[in-house]
Computed example of a mutant assay.
Amino acid sequence: MTQRIGEITNGANQKEEREKAHKCAGWLGGPQSAIRHGDQQVHVKERITTMVRVESRNLLARMGAILAVAAVAVSLGPVKADATAAGTGADRYCAVLIGKSTEEKPSPVLARACDDSSAANAREKMLQVTSKDGSNSTMKPLAADLLMTWYSDTDYHGASTNVFGDDGPCDRAGYRLDVNNTTFGLWSHILSSARGSGPCNTARFANRAGTSSQEFGLPVPYLGSLLNDNVGTIWVYNR
């Protein structure tokens, strides 16, 4: 009997010890699980932080590239008007017929025409659209009546306009052209070089604002920084 009581007592003690051990393990298991969960949160946070940093660097790189392109565009300044258009659509060659100036006033524009294939074609078209005699005009300026030729680029390149005089070749009085006149299209903004014809050996160019001018012997391959793409009036004459 005593032996049986001892066995029961020992069994009870062992059960109690096992329950204590389970409680201890459960108590320890709680914080460990919390620690593991905390580690996962820290790991996710670190990954998010890394992704944000990468995206920020990419955004800064893109912004830098955009600013660099903008800086280049600003440094280049305004783009010159399309010289081949020269205010005439797609036409590269133009011809203008002007009358004699009186009292130092601008010479009247009698006709103007353009062509995209040749200066000769532009001249023929001009003869058909003279404002003085209408579309059936038979006016035929002589070759000597070519006063000067404008070019949109330096050294006599690019689009061109031949200027003819209705009152014969140049004399001391010459002809005066108001290039600011819309009849001439964009030429006040693109004229860079010019040739004279026959006795038309001198020309005075003034800027669009009319604040400064310079005289050149013709031909002139470059009008200089002050007048290049900035011509308001031209006085072409014989000297």
Rank of each mutant, 00 (worst) to 15 (best):
T183Q: 05
Y93P: 01
V96E: 06
A65V: 15
L67I: 05
I98Y: 03
D178M: 02
G198Y: 05
T138K: 09
G77F: 07
K125Q: 02
P106W: 03
D145P: 06
Q128L: 05
D167T: 02
L223R: 08
C170R: 06
L146Y: 12
G168F: 05
N13K: 02
A68H: 15
A209D: 11
R53W: 12
V52Q: 11
N230I: 12
E103A: 10
L223P: 04
A209H: 01
T202D: 13
G210I: 09
A209Y: 00
K132E: 04
K125P: 00
D133K: 07
A95E: 08
G38Q: 03
L97I: 04
R172M: 12
I8G: 08
G29K: 06
T88D: 15
V231H: 07
M126S: 03
R4W: 00
M51N: 04
G210R: 01
D116A: 02
G77D: 09
P219T: 06
G174E: 05
I8C: 12
P199C: 03
R239D: 13
I35W: 06
G26E: 06
K20A: 08
E17D: 13
G165W: 04
P221R: 10
A21I: 07
A111C: 05
N180H: 00
G6I: 13
A70E: 08
L186D: 15
L76Y: 10
A12R: 11
Y222R: 08
A25E: 01
K80S: 09
L97Y: 04
G87S: 09
A86F: 02
E16I: 09
R204T: 15
R18P: 04
A25D: 01
C94V: 04
S75V: 12
K132G: 02
A194R: 01
V79Q: 15
W187C: 00
Q41V: 12
Y93A: 01
G198I: 04
A144D: 13
S56E: 10
S160M: 07
G134T: 10
S131K: 08
P108G: 01
G38R: 00
V220K: 06
L67K: 14
K140T: 14
E103C: 06
R112V: 13
K45L: 14
N181T: 04
D153H: 12
A95Y: 01
S118A: 14
L76F: 13
Y93S: 00
V236H: 07
A120H: 10
L186S: 15
A122R: 00
F205P: 03
E124I: 13
D39L: 14
L67E: 12
A70W: 11
E215Q: 06
L142F: 05
E16D: 11
N10R: 04
I8S: 10
Q32N: 06
T9R: 11
A90D: 15
V42F: 09
G11M: 07
H22T: 03
R62D: 14
A113C: 03
K100S: 07
G87N: 05
N238W: 10
W235H: 12
Q128C: 03
Y156A: 03
H37Q: 15
N121R: 11
A194K: 00
D145E: 09
S188M: 08
S188C: 04
I66V: 08
V72S: 08
R239V: 09
L127V: 07
D167I: 00
K45I: 14
E46A: 14
S117H: 12
L76G: 06
S152C: 00
E46Y: 14
S75C: 09
